[in-house]
Design a protein around this nucleic acid. Structure first.
Lengths: 140, 140
DNA sequence: TAGGACCTTGGAAACACTATAATGTAGCCG
DNA sequence: CGGCTACATTATAGTGTTTCCAAGGTCCTA
């Protein structure tokens, strides 16, 4: 998906500008689930004139076209995930780091509960402690 | 849990003040997953001197003691859920209404993926369209 | 009744994000 | 190739949510 957007020429109304290409390059294959702020800080190093608004504009466009997923996993900020394949997430309660759980997980949706509600998808959020924070906790 | 907090006397350092009791009363049995703002607006009617800070202070205390769950289901604001039993949520993509899915749902966590990560819990977010929004969409 | 611990209040401030208006530029068409 | 148009970018201002702070209030204990 991102690869397509990086190719030359117009693709469904998406213009390739240096700023957008920098953002796409930073996101491509990125599994750190960065926030807009984190993306801005990295991309602004190579592109000093970069504006915060451009990062948000670009991200919102990418989310709308489905090239990037907006994660609502962190209570303090939105995070963005260029991996649009079916997968779930693990979040460390201490350091807030987000890891991927690839693949689909079969779910037994209790029938009758969601009556009248069309279910279009699901997302599982696992929470716990990552290896680093687990060790730190033990020492305390 | 909330019942306990509403009883007379001190309970684990939690003082019962009129403001806090109003908030507890509004939350008790409430399945609308309200935001701090919604709680403030309702509670301030009966308690005109109520401050926003008090709502946030109380909610944060309740979350820390485990009496209330903070939901990270809405990208725009935190929502609060007094139901601390194991359950999951359905969110309408149109109107953002959140419904409950009671009970535990057995999950096959793929082994090896979460190596080194202690998993302490999970939360499933189903998304789709509620009955009302489903009808409205059809008419368009 | 005095002291201390805790709560409440209002305002300011921090933060994430969005809107606006002016300027810049890519891509199309002649 | 050159200009037009539509779209992007920028800086800045604004909005909404949440937190911080300092002053004052209230309740318990001695």
């Amino acid at each position: 998906m991102l690869k397509k957007l990086q190719q030359k020429g117009m693709f469904s109304g998406f213009k390739r500008t240096p700023q957008r290409l920098s953002i796409l390059e930073h996101l491509d294959g990125n599994t750190s689930h960065p926030s807009a702020d984190e993306i801005y800080r990295v991309v602004a190093r190579k592109n000093p004139s970069m504006s915060f608004a451009t990062v948000y504009n670009t991200l919102n466009t990418l989310v709308q076209t489905g090239a990037v997923r907006e994660l609502t996993i962190d209570p303090d900020r939105k995070r963005y995930d260029p991996d649009t394949s079916a997968h779930h997430h693990l979040i460390c309660l201490e350091c807030k780091k987000v890891a991927d759980i690839p693949g689909d997980i079969p779910l037994e949706i209790p029938r009758g509960v969601a009556k009248d509600f069309v279910i279009l998808g699901n997302h599982i959020e696992f929470y716990g402690l990552c290896a680093t924070c687990k060790k730190l906790k033990r020492k305390k």
